[in-house]
Computed example of a mutant assay.
Amino acid sequence: MPDSYADLSRFYDLVMTSGYYDYDAYAQALLDRIGTGRGLLELGVGTGLVCDRLLALGPADLRLTGIDHTDSMLVQARGRLGGRARLLREDVLDMSFPSAFDVAYSVGGVWYIVQDGEESWLSSHLMEEEDNAAALANLAAAVRPGGSLLLCVQGPHRPHERPLPGGLVYTQHVDVDSEGRYTKDYYISRQETVLAHQRLRFRLFPMKTADQLLERYGFHFQSSDGVLWQYARR
């Protein structure tokens, strides 16, 4: 995967904590779903915001591992979390873990669910089906049988703009082609001067296609509650 958030990383926390995500809600939903599992793997740990809330709200014996492929994000995550979580520079296409994790989860990371009314899709930052297959095979090897994969729910991707603290403005532009491949441009600006620009690409898979792909690698749909979708690792 490309170094997805290299340019946006210095503004990432400001964008994400000013209304983009409700991290307490995601963390509590995750904690409600993990049961007795204590070994957690975050797919796309970013700057460590989800891990931080899990450690604040969850039991003291949580064992958190977060992976990301963007060095600048991991630097911030290590500053935030210190030694409270294991943070690794890993790409899901290459990662290799023993079957040791009780739960893997993604809050807007590699995969997540997009819902628009009654319709849902699996969103992936991996554009090709063969890359998704390879990454899910690696994930299946990392999550123990009987464990879970938890994917957060987001709304549809649309162009919008909103103010940020400090006189900054966040803007996103979204384009999509006929095959459901999206290009999303993020801008941080002040007084019409662009301070940072990041381009990300992702793809939406219809849920029938997504479920077939997930099933192929041992992840069976269990339930959804509007915040998370849960898949059981067979």
Rank of each mutant, 00 (worst) to 15 (best):
G180S: 08
I113T: 14
P98T: 12
L122R: 04
E130K: 10
P163V: 08
T209C: 00
R199G: 03
R38H: 07
L87Q: 05
R158V: 15
Y217R: 11
L151E: 08
Q76L: 13
V176R: 13
P98F: 01
R78Q: 14
L8G: 06
D102S: 08
Y105P: 03
V15W: 15
T36I: 06
L55I: 08
D32I: 01
G146A: 02
D52T: 02
S18W: 08
R199D: 05
T171M: 06
L57G: 02
G226Y: 03
G39A: 13
D3W: 03
T209Y: 00
F97L: 05
V143A: 06
R216A: 15
L93F: 03
T17M: 11
Y20A: 15
V194E: 14
A85N: 09
D3K: 09
R216Y: 06
A210P: 13
A135N: 07
L164A: 11
H69I: 07
E130Q: 13
L200F: 03
T193D: 12
G109V: 06
L139C: 04
Q191V: 05
D71Y: 03
G109I: 05
L93I: 07
Y170L: 12
A56T: 14
Q198R: 04
P165W: 07
V143D: 10
L57Y: 02
R234Q: 14
Y231G: 11
D94P: 00
A6S: 14
F97I: 09
A104V: 06
Y182Q: 05
D71E: 15
L14M: 14
L41K: 03
V110I: 10
E130F: 07
H197D: 10
T65A: 00
G66R: 02
R144M: 11
R233W: 10
H69M: 06
A140T: 09
A210W: 12
G218N: 13
G180A: 04
R201F: 00
M127L: 15
A133P: 00
E179H: 09
L150E: 12
G226N: 04
G147P: 04
P159F: 08
F205C: 00
Q222E: 14
S124I: 05
A25Y: 02
G48T: 09
G117A: 06
L93G: 11
S4F: 12
S178Y: 07
K208A: 13
F219V: 07
L204R: 15
E130W: 12
L62I: 02
Y105S: 01
S223P: 01
Y26F: 15
R162G: 13
S99I: 03
